[in-house]
């Protein structure tokens, strides 16, 4: 067992544990905090793949900015514990087995498919960040710029939804 494999298993286990706790926790704040664990573990996995820039962005944007926003919204809405209704109990008995089945089946398919993948070897150049920048600002400059419109629409949305009652 190489060190890399050990690290991968540890990080993957942490990510899965965080994701489980995210779904199972009844208080939204707990779910939000579990999400941070997932994000950080994912950042570790990216680092393991040699994608140091993506890992840093993952920590700064997701674990940092977006999570702060989540926590703020939850606090602002003063969201309490989830309430269990008869419907949500039904979701547990009907939904849980289905979710487990789908997860296993999906994992099986992906594992089966991935073994057939002949992924190109990682580029030899040691600057994945440069490659990323080239992709983002040349080949994919259009989707990158279009996200500006997406953000504009979102801002417009907050103005519309947040306006004072007339």
């Amino acid at each position: 067992m190489t060190l890399e494999l050990v690290l991968f298993i540890v990080l993957a286990a942490v990510a899965i544990a965080g994701a489980l706790s995210l779904i199972l926790a009844r208080h939204p704040i707990r779910s939000a905090l579990s999400l941070i664990v997932v994000m950080v573990a994912l950042a570790g996995l990216y680092l393991l793949q040699g994608a140091d820039f993506i890992a840093a962005v993952q920590v700064i944007v997701y674990a940092g900015a977006i999570m702060v926003l989540f926590v703020f919204v939850i606090m602002l809405l003063n969201a309490g514990e989830e309430e269990r209704t008869s419907w949500s109990r039904m979701a547990r008995y009907a939904g849980l087995p289905l979710a487990i089945y789908l997860t296993v089946q999906f994992a099986w398919w992906v594992a089966d498919g991935a073994s057939a993948l002949a992924l190109p070897a990682a580029p030899a150049e040691s600057e994945p960040t440069r490659r990323l920048a080239q992709l983002l600002f040349r080949e994919f400059v259009l989707p990158f710029e279009l996200t500006a419109i997406l953000i504009l629409v979102a801002i417009l949305g907050t103005v519309v939804l947040g306006r004072r009652e007339s």
Partner: peptide, 24 residues
Amino acid sequence: LVTVFIGLEISSLSTYILASYRRE
């Protein structure tokens, strides 16, 4: 497909907002 996705998001986001336009 990535371009499709951004277009889809722009279209969806604006329709979500328009659907809730009658706030009261």
